[in-house]
Design a protein around this nucleic acid. Structure first.
Length: 487
RNA sequence: GGCUCGUUGGUCAAGGGGUUAAGACGUCGCCCUCUCACGGCGAAAUCAGCGGUUCGAUUCCGCUACGAGCUGCCA
């Protein structure tokens, strides 16, 4: 075997891609690419019951969007195919290896039916558990042959010792030892002839020469059994890298219900793939310096799995939002316009307005695209605002002096045709200087009149430029009317 | 219940016998400013608890508590 590093991402086609799985895929990719190795995609579809139509497309699409390009996979033969377990199964591959274990006494046929298995179950602490009692291990070779000949459904189970201990080494958690009496005789081949994940994964990882098995923490307690499988075959076990769990804010496993458990959900909520990737890379791992914003290429350069954390990490949406905002701010304008346009069109339907200028205003003010809608809706239509908004202590404005300013400014603005930000700036600042007032005393009422909002992206000049002369004047007149009616 | 793993501010985390216990998000304050942001500056906030080892434990060991995972013919 060569020293070339090979990792694999081995999802089941059962639906959307969970962020925990995506992080696993990411780390597998990073481990391989950091060393110039191979990243393999293998589809584990041995459970036909859970197969979901279209799930395969989701896997391909998600990996593509996340930038995790695989070197080998169902669509890219690298000489270790097939890369789909159901196809591998067709050649009788798994059964062949299972039979080899049977011959060596490391596995055995089991003909126990559901009723007998159920009778083995017991309820402990409110949970149903069952440990197989090795009943069929004691069948004679003749009895087994006879049952097989009769066509009685069977499974093949691993034959684990009941004494002694089994130890395996995890790159993150170190040496882990368990008593063999804890090892259940897990099923290797199901009665439908398909292998279980537990078995197929060992066979395929070995056959595909996977050097680093990276997977979630939940497999750690099964690993001693895999270890025994490798030993039974006389194969060298891979390096194990078990990753800490990602939890929700309540420290519970991320569930489908929380709305941000899958890559798809996140994208739908307006998050950028590269921000998601960047964020999850930092869940359970941290680089050496103080930087936190990294491209995939940079992650490849810096990633070192030896620094992966042992403890679970909370998936913090607030920080993800911040990070997404950072990506938006750095995004080049064209891509930003493209991505933001569908959202702004939801709230602004008039066509005599420069949407790109509005988007420029909003770029540093949103963390996620849908945020922009409520920021810019006033461009579409002046809200029916309360004139209390004209009163601002710090600006030293109130209804009376706001009305005065607007009435004085109205003819000046009506006389002006150049509504560029610069021109507006010059004329209004001149008015302010001549009158000898603070900037805010004029600018606050004007901004309020043209926007009808307390807070706006951009100031009075920018808003008026975008609105244009007619609409600006109309809104100022509306402001004057509102104020007159109240004074 | 059993087994396994984990526990540094609210969150992500660095550090690993002697440190003022990094940094980031968030929070709060100040500056900038026509508002909101951006940007800049600053502050509050952490070693789960108890024992042990040691001149000295956040760091090593043990126990407890809490959390999580596994205990499927799911992966």
């Amino acid at each position: 075997m060569s020293n070339r590093i090979r990792t694999r991402y081995a999802p089941s086609p059962t639906g959307k891609m969970h962020v925990g799985n995506l992080r696993t895929a990411l780390y597998e990719y990073l481990i391989a690419k950091h060393e110039g190795g191979d990243f393999v995609l293998r589809i584990e579809d041995t459970d036909q019951e859970r197969y979901v139509e279209g799930a395969l497309d989701i896997i391909y699409r998600t990996m593509k969007e996340a930038g995790l390009e695989h070197d080998e996979g169902p669509d890219k033969d690298g000489g270790f195919g097939p890369y789909v377990q159901s196809e591998r199964q067709n050649s009788g591959l798994y059964l062949k290896y299972a039979k080899k274990l049977v011959e060596d006494g490391k596995a055995y046929y089991c003909f126990c039916d559901k009723e007998r298995l159920d009778s083995l179950k017991q309820v402990v602490a409110g949970k149903e558990i069952s440990i197989y009692d090795k009943h069929c291990l004691h069948l004679s070779k003749e009895e087994v042959e006879e049952n097989l000949a009769k066509g009685i459904p069977y499974v093949i189970r691993q034959n684990n010792p009941t004494e002694g201990t089994t130890t395996f080494v995890d790159e993150i958690y170190g040496e882990i030892t368990v008593n063999n009496e804890e090892l259940d005789d897990m099923i290797l081949i199901k009665s439908d002839g398909y292998p279980t994940y537990n078995f197929a994964n060992v066979i395929d990882d070995h056959l595909m020469e996977i050097t680093h098995v990276v997977r979630g923490n939940e497999y750690i307690s099964s690993s001693p059994k895999y270890q025994r499988l490798y030993e039974a075959f006389g194969w060298e076990p891979p390096k194990y890298v078990h990753l800490p769990l990602i939890t929700d804010e309540n420290h519970k496993k991320l569930s489908k219900r929380c709305g941000h458990s899958s890559f798809e959900d996140l994208v739908e909520q307006g998050f950028l793939p590269e921000a998601i990737v960047n964020f999850i890379a930092l869940l359970g791992w941290s680089p050496e310096g103080n930087e936190e914003i990294f491209s995939l290429e940079e992650l490849v350069k810096m990633f070192d799995y030896h620094h992966v954390n042992k403890s679970p990490a909370v998936f913090d949406m607030v920080k993800l939002r911040w990070m997404n905002g950072e990506y938006i701010k750095k995004m080049d304008d064209e891509r930003f316009y493209d991505m933001a346009m569908p959202y702004i069109k939801e709230v602004i339907t008039k066509d005599n307005i420069d949407l790109k200028k509005i988007l420029d205003l909003v770029k540093t003010r949103i963390e996620v695209f849908p945020d922009l809608k409520e920021l810019v809706d006033f461009f579409e239509e002046l809200p029916d605002y309360d004139i209390a908004m004209y009163t601002h202590k710090k600006m030293k404005t109130n209804s009376e002096n706001s009305l005065e300013v607007l009435e004085e400014l109205l003819p000046i603005l009506e006389a002006q045709d150049d509504y560029s930000t610069d021109a507006l700036h010059d004329t209004i600042m001149k008015y302010i200087a001549d009158k000898g007032i603070k900037n805010g005393q004029a600018l606050w009422p004007v901004r309020t009149a043209v926007s009808g909002k307390q807070m706006t992206p951009g100031g009075a000049f920018e808003i008026m430029e975008i609105l244009g002369k007619d609409e600006s004047i109309a809104r100022i007149k509306t402001g004057i009317d509102k104020l007159k009616a109240a004074v």
